[in-house]
Design a protein around this nucleic acid. Structure first.
Lengths: 340, 340
DNA sequence: GTGAAAGCGCTAACAC
DNA sequence: GTGTTAGCGCTTTCAC
């Protein structure tokens, strides 16, 4: 592996000149530029990135934090893939690399160590969920004035940057739609309230009920953990309400699919005997049977926006700006609510 | 952000001593160790990773190459998520970080630049497909004697390391199973032959036919591109053979699901009127309707093994060893082939 | 056990 | 336009 010194020697110029050529900055006589380029080509020289970043006191990395592996499947992998690919797309044009980081399974939460060791210049945090510890770790980061951004999770009371979806209105639209379809007794299978996602959807559900003068009924509220299995399990309980139920609305597609499985096993036809709806517009929602009415969430775009935000922070020297974006969601109507 | 010098000063020792303590190497008097640790804590000191890697002349990164974004969805994202999480799991215990890299959409293929710029110490390549250019890029890497590893793709004629699944036998078992179920006229919907995956499955299919004395029939062979859409499209053609067909076996689950959709639209019941099988045992295969008979591929483990291999290479100084692993696959029987 | 010092391959500031 | 040089914060080797 050759280095700059060798190129400089071969080209008969100073190392500084080699740098100028490689970085395309500063005025250079075309003839020396060519000499350098030739020498570089001849020696197969590529500037060393680690050295460069060391000298610049920047890691050149954006870290993306994921839940530790086993937990990934709790969520749809769809959700993560989409966000990741959005981030990757945005970073692809930039000088920054994407470092994949895994939250520790146990042990104290500490995001700041990735900054302190200089591993990353910015952080995008996925799958964060509210707990005192998590909140502290995040606030600590904010104190350090390092750029970071949550995706698909908010802490409304805190001044933290996030890119989220419009889940309150998404959920409200979904519920209103079900009501329009003639449903008044709508079971809602929510996810853990530690996710702002879940709280948003619950709020949207309640708002829609209120707006349509439908009384709130505790019996219709269920909780799963966003896994298909939990959907299937909760559906056992939901089944017991059956004659007096018009629809089941689950807070994500995976649970909705679990619900449909249980229903079908019990001889209840989703979409006919009982309307079923999900949330996320995941791949699975379009291939399930029946296809699932759901809410599209722009995960890919959310990833892009989060990355764009960080990139912007690196540009300017001031205090990190705070962004709090909520991107539009969209109701997707499919057979699970229309076969009536 | 504090550095080693400050810690050394505060602790009243040399910088070398601070290093020894931080790295836990070399003999240290317990009392000085404490002094250093106290100083480090007081200054909130974390050794700078970039500087460290620079000095060690190692990037500390393992790069994982993915197809450029738009193409990801051709494959199941399932496949990538599983492999990635396997790699992540293996690396989590190590000193190495996971750098996510995207293959250029267009432009010349060049994996070696990531080594030449010192960005990575090793590479895991996903979604590689055979072409002259790809092959050249890979052989060039091998010439440089840098450690890298393909996952779920082989180049049999070349001395390249890979971690693959036993797809020939997987496919043979699937086909044999379908034959056992009484099928003799089995359409095979394959993926592009640029993937060793596709060639393996075709071979397994042929072997099983031969072993059971069933004559090869060109008419039963179809090609898609592993997307659901292509499965749905090819199914239109497959439909035309219908009265004289017992089963459709697709080279991955996504295509199989596409096939089932088209079949259902045409009033053909998958699993009753025509058996359908897929490959991969993706999430979708268990929630499709009917659930899909498929072949389980240990993607997660494949990721782990690839990462383990690279880690092992970093240990020793010799020429990189070559591994060519094929991990066991397993037939998963579900309703799409059993309702008869 | 501990300290001193020479790199690692760049960037950035300044000199000419 | 081009050259010189002082770092960046570590590792590593050798000296004591």
């Amino acid at each position: 592996m050759s280095n700059r010194k060798q190129v400089a020697q071969l080209a008969g110029v100073s190392e500084a000149t080699v740098s100028r050529v490689m970085n395309g900055i500063g005025p250079i006589k075309e003839s020396t530029r060519q000499k350098v380029l030739d020498a570089a080509k001849q020696l197969d020289y590529y500037p060393n990135d680690v050295a460069r970043r060391f000298a610049k006191k920047q890691s050149g990395n954006i870290g993306v934090v994921l839940p530790f592996v086993p937990k990934v499947n709790l969520f749809s992998t769809f959700y993560f893939s989409e966000i990741l690919s959005g981030i990757g797309e945005m970073l692809h044009e930039s000088e920054y690399d994407l470092l994949l980081l895994f939250r520790d399974a146990d042990g104290p939460k500490d995001y700041s160590r990735w900054f302190k060791t200089g591993k990353v210049d910015g952080l995008i945090i996925l799958g964060s969920s509210d707990s005192q510890e998590e909140r502290n770790a995040l606030l600590q980061l904010a104190d350090h004035h390092v750029p970071f951004c949550l995706v698909n999770q908010r802490y409304d009371e805190e001044k933290l940057s996030y890119v989220d979806g419009e889940h309150v209105s998404g959920s409200r639209e979904m519920t209103a739609y079900l009501i329009q379809q003639g449903c008044r007794r709508i079971a809602f299978l929510n996810g853990p309230l530690a996710y702002s996602n879940s709280r948003d959807r619950l709020l949207g559900y309640r708002q829609a009920l209120e707006e349509h003068g439908i009384e709130w009924n505790d019996q219709y509220l269920f909780y799963g953990n966003y896994s298909r299995k939990s959907g299937a399990q909760q559906a056992e309980l939901i089944l017991k309400l059956l004659p007096k139920l018009d629809a089941v609305y689950a807070a994500n597609d995976r649970m909705a699919i679990g619900v449909m499985q249980t229903l079908k096993q019990a001889g209840i036809r989703p979409g006919h005997d009982l309307l079923v709806a999900g949330y996320d517009n995941s791949d699975a929602s379009s291939v399930s049977d029946p296809p699932l009415t759901t809410v599209h969430v722009p995960f890919h775009l959310m990833g892009r926006e989060a990355a764009k935000y960080l990139l912007r922070q690196f540009g300017c020297k001031e205090q990190p700006e705070i962004i709090q974006l909520k991107l539009d969601t969209k109701l997707i109507i499919r057979a699970s609510t229309t076969k009536n």
